[in-house]
Design a protein around this nucleic acid. Structure first.
Lengths: 260, 260
DNA sequence: CGGAGTATTGAGTGACATCAACGCGCGTGG
DNA sequence: CCACGCGCGTTGATGTCACTCAATACTCCG
């Protein structure tokens, strides 16, 4: 666990034009699931009360504390994690731009896990009250938001399969396919290339591997000419084989458009 | 994968008195999360269109097929699973009496996993249309159902932590604690004893272990005098130590009452 | 130019998997 | 009632994937 300097910049409560256009990424994400009515877009966008910025390694949600609002990620990568007594850390979710981070927190749920920024991040906030109101008056939008939490749960199940049954190499391939597919859905990746701002340590904690072994798994993928990985630039040089090796089937991501 | 003889017994669509009392277990489960209004109980119970019975090893949801209705488990244990090319099976969820099995299926989600009965099971059905209607007119009940899917997601994250970071023995201890706690919440367990109708093979596929190693993990727990396990009867002889060894914190189960 | 963080490599160890055999309880059929 | 077979639990021997420890490179940054 790194230091936790939370550089939060509160904005005025009235959604500005620029704020709204930043929020587009969230709409793009929701549209990747299904058609979204313009009216629902308006309702959701106007529910945003402000944005916050986080430095790398800043704590977005502190373990054990229920945040006073729900957040959607506008920029950067973040992740949910849990720490065990021996210091081991498991990343249980990776949040990419457009993802809701803790949509579940508006229901009086308790969690003992935290959310950390893996790169510089910006989030948009919606108050619990606003979301509660949406569930009262906007059933269609409510179903859409519910659905986005269900897609997250399906991703959890896929990761369970990776960790329980797949080899380190296959799991790594699978995760790379997932990240590319999710980024592409919000137009942050294309041509089998994407920017991966997180370290191998983070990826290792996600896959339940040691950094050493993850590194060797990545190198095995390189040796097979399936990927290139230089600093934070990842290029998938053989998508079909990577998909095959990782047994990646994007069905669980619930997207309505094909991948390529 | 065993044979799949689906002995389904359809009942008339009008909920009978006995059917309604069977459905009580689902209400008990929902009440374990939060207070449930009597009106919501009525609405939900009247949405039940019938029950079905399944033999051990019967397929409750066939992989790849979207079921025409959603199901809640009234009796028996079931589980969601995914099979890989090499035949490896990962159990991604264990369903106990009172749990909704595929509450997510009413939203047009696709899944390539299946649900299988681990013991004789009975389910109650609610049509997608009824559930859709509930989301239109019953926001409070909708939030409650949403919440139950969020608790399932939190359980997935806990299992990710088990599989990624915990030893086989600690993970086994954790799962035993979880099962007892969940069963106790619906009054199917007490006094640190419960009936576990599933085989070690199933538990091993849940924890991502081989049967041999799971068996040795269980025996280690026995040797420490933490549990007794004879046929399908499990007795936790030292709850505090089992909780400690498995680092079990029931927070993620979202229950509003203490455990003991 | 030094230092911190990250990536990479090597060597040794350990946890868990695999393979194989045996016991045990239970249901079934003779 | 017993013989048989099947599913499941248990045990031992052996193999291997991934972890740990440790050291070295690379890159960025001050």
């Amino acid at each position: 666990m790194k230091s936790v300097s939370n550089v939060a910049a509160f904005r005025p409560a009235i959604a500005s034009v620029s704020q709204r256009s930043q929020f587009d990424i969230v709409i793009r994400k929701l549209r990747s699931f299904d058609h979204v009515a313009d009216e629902d877009v308006s309702v959701l966008a106007s529910a945003v009360s402000g944005t916050r910025s986080f430095d790398t390694c800043a704590s977005i949600v502190t373990p054990g504390k229920t945040p006073p609002h729900i957040s959607a990620l506008l920029e950067g990568w973040a992740g949910r994690y849990k720490i065990l007594r021996n210091g081991a850390r498991q990343i249980t979710a990776l949040y990419l731009p457009g993802d809701f981070i803790d949509l579940h927190s508006f229901l009086p749920t308790k969690t003992d896990d935290g959310v950390i920024a893996f790169s510089g991040c910006k989030t948009a906030q919606v108050s619990h009250e606003s979301l509660q109101q949406i569930t009262e008056t906007e059933p269609r939008l409510t179903r859409l938001l519910w659905r986005s939490t269900l897609a997250a749960a399906a991703t959890h199940r896929e990761w369970l399969t990776i960790m329980g049954q797949m080899s380190a190499g296959a799991g790594t391939a699978h995760l790379i396919c997932e990240l590319y597919t999710r980024l592409k859905a919000v137009r942050l990746a294309d041509n089998h290339r994407f920017c991966c701002p997180i370290t191998q340590l983070t990826l290792a904690d996600t896959l339940g591997l040691s950094t050493v072994h993850l590194n060797r798994s990545i190198q095995a993928l390189r040796a097979k000419n399936l990927i290139q990985w230089h600093r934070d630039k990842v290029t998938i040089t053989d998508w079909d084989q990577l998909v095959d090796w990782g047994e990646f089937d994007p069905t669980y991501l619930q997207m309505n458009e094909p991948v390529g």
